[in-house]
C-alpha cells in the first residue's frame, strides 16, 4: 500500500480517537460541573463519582424506542443526524498535533491533510453544519422544530462572517493558510491572543454562536421551543446530534487553540521525534480540555440571548469589530510589529 496513504489513515485514526471520546467525557463533565455550579451533587450513583454515567446514557440511547413522526419527510428526517456528523468529523483534519516526524527516511507532517488551503477548508466544511439544523427542523413536520431550524441557520450564517474575518486577521502576519505555519509563527513570536486580543474575543463569541452553545443556544433552547430543531428525534438519532454538537465544539476549540494559543507547541519546548509528537498531542489535548471547560463554565453562568439580540450582536457588533481587528492587524503587520 502507498505509505503516504497508510500514514494518513493512521493520523486520522489518532485524531478520530481523540475527537470521538469528547462527547461521552463532556457528558460527564458537563453534568458534574453544572451540578457543582448549581450547588448540588450531580450524577453520583453509576460508578465512583458517577464516572460510568456516559455508559449508562449510551445504553439508554441504544435501547430507547425510535419514534418517527408520521407525516415527517422520511429521507430528510433520516439524513439530518448524518449531515450533523459530517462537518464534525471532517473539520479536524487540518489541525496539526505535533512537529514533523521522521520515520524511515521520510518526513511526515503530523496533520491528516497538510493542504495549502488549511484554514479555508475548515471554514468551508464547518459551514455545512447549517444543513442538518435546517433539514431537521423542516423534516420534522412540527412548527416548533421549523422555527428552531430557521433560527439556527440564520444564527450560524450570521456568525460565520465574524468568525471568518477574525481567523483572517490571524493569517495576515503569517502569510499562509496552513495551520502548521501558524504554529511555527507562534513558536518564534508571542502567542497570537496577546497582540490580537480583539480578534480572539470576536472568535470566542462567534464560536459560541457557531456551536449553538449558551448563551446562543436558542435553536435548541430547552425552555423555549421544547427542544428546538431536534424535538422529534429520540434515541440514537438524538445521540448523533449530541455527538455532533460536542465534536463540533471540540474541533472549533482545537482551531481556536491552534490559531491563538500556539496549538501543540509549548513555549521553550522543542522536542523532536516520537517524544515530541506525543508531547505535542498531549499539549493539544490539554489545551482542548481547558477550552471545553470554558465552554461549560460559560454555559451554566449566562442567560440565553433572545433572537433579535443575537442577530443584532452578530451583525452590528461583532462584524464591525472583526473588520476593525483586521485593519488593526494589517496596520501592525505593515509597521513590522508582528
Amino acid at each position: 500500500m502507498n505509505p503516504a496513504l497508510v500514514a494518513t489513515l493512521l493520523k486520522y485514526a489518532v485524531m478520530f480517537g481523540v475527537f470521538i471520546n469528547v462527547a461521552p467525557i463532556m457528558n460527564w463533565v458537563e453534568r458534574r460541573a453544572c451540578a457543582y455550579i448549581q450547588d448540588r451533587p450531580g450524577p453520583n450513583r453509576v460508578g465512583p463519582l458517577g464516572l460510568f454515567q456516559p455508559l449508562a446514557d449510551a445504553a439508554k440511547f441504544m435501547f430507547k424506542e425510535d419514534v418517527t413522526p408520521a407525516a415527517a419527510d422520511k429521507l430528510l428526517y433520516l439524513m439530518a443526524p448524518v449531515l450533523a456528523l459530517l462537518p464534525a468529523f471532517t473539520t479536524f483534519v487540518i489541525i496539526p498535533f505535533g512537529p514533523d516526524l521522521t520515520v524511515g527516511g521520510r518526513t511526515i507532517p503530523l496533520v491528516v491533510a497538510p493542504v495549502d488551503t488549511g484554514v479555508l477548508l475548515f471554514l468551508a466544511l464547518s459551514s455545512l453544519a447549517v444543513y442538518s439544523l435546517v433539514l431537521a427542523g423542516y423534516a420534522s413536520n412540527n412548527k416548533f422544530s421549523l422555527l428552531g431550524g430557521i433560527r439556527a441557520s440564520a444564527q450560524l450564517i450570521s456568525y460565520e462572517l465574524a468568525l471568518t474575518l477574525s481567523v483572517l486577521a490571524v493569517l495576515l502576519p503569517v502569510n499562509s493558510f496552513r495551520l502548521a505555519d501558524i504554529v511555527a509563527y507562534q513558536q518564534t513570536h508571542v502567542w497570537n491572543f496577546i497582540p490580537q486580543i480583539l480578534g480572539f474575543f470576536v472568535f470566542l463569541v462567534a464560536s459560541f454562536a457557531e456551536t449553538n452553545r449558551l448563551p446562543f443556544d436558542l435553536p435548541e433552547a430547552e425552555s423555549e421551543l421544547i427542544a428546538g430543531f431536534h424535538t422529534e428525534y429520540s434515541a440514537m438519532r438524538f445521540a448523533a446530534f449530541f455527538q455532533a454538537e460536542y465534536t463540533n465544539m471540540a474541533a472549533l476549540a482545537a482551531l481556536g487553540v491552534t490559531l491563538f494559543f500556539g496549538g501543540w507547541s509549548l513555549p521553550g519546548v522543542h522536542l523532536g521525534g516520537w517524544l515530541g509528537a506525543i508531547v505535542g498531542l498531549v499539549t493539544l489535548i490539554a489545551k482542548l480540555c481547558v477550552c471545553m471547560a470554558v465552554f461549560v463554565w460559560v454555559r451554566w453562568t449566562f442567560p440565553r440571548f433572545r433572537y433579535d439580540q443575537l442577530m443584532r450582536l452578530g451583525w452590528k457588533v461583532l462584524l464591525p469589530l472583526s473588520i476593525l481587528n483586521l485593519i488593526l492587524v494589517a496596520a501592525m503587520t505593515l509597521a513590522g510589529w508582528l
Partner: peptide
C-alpha cells in the same frame, strides 16, 4: 485548483444554497 474547491464549498454550498433553502421555507 484546491483553493477554488474550498471556495466552492464555502460560497456555493455553504451560503448560496442555504439562501435558497431559506427562501423555499
Amino acid at each position: 485548483a484546491p483553493f477554488l474547491g474550498a471556495l466552492q464549498i464555502l460560497i456555493y454550498a455553504g451560503a448560496i444554497v442555504v439562501l435558497f433553502l431559506f427562501v423555499i421555507m
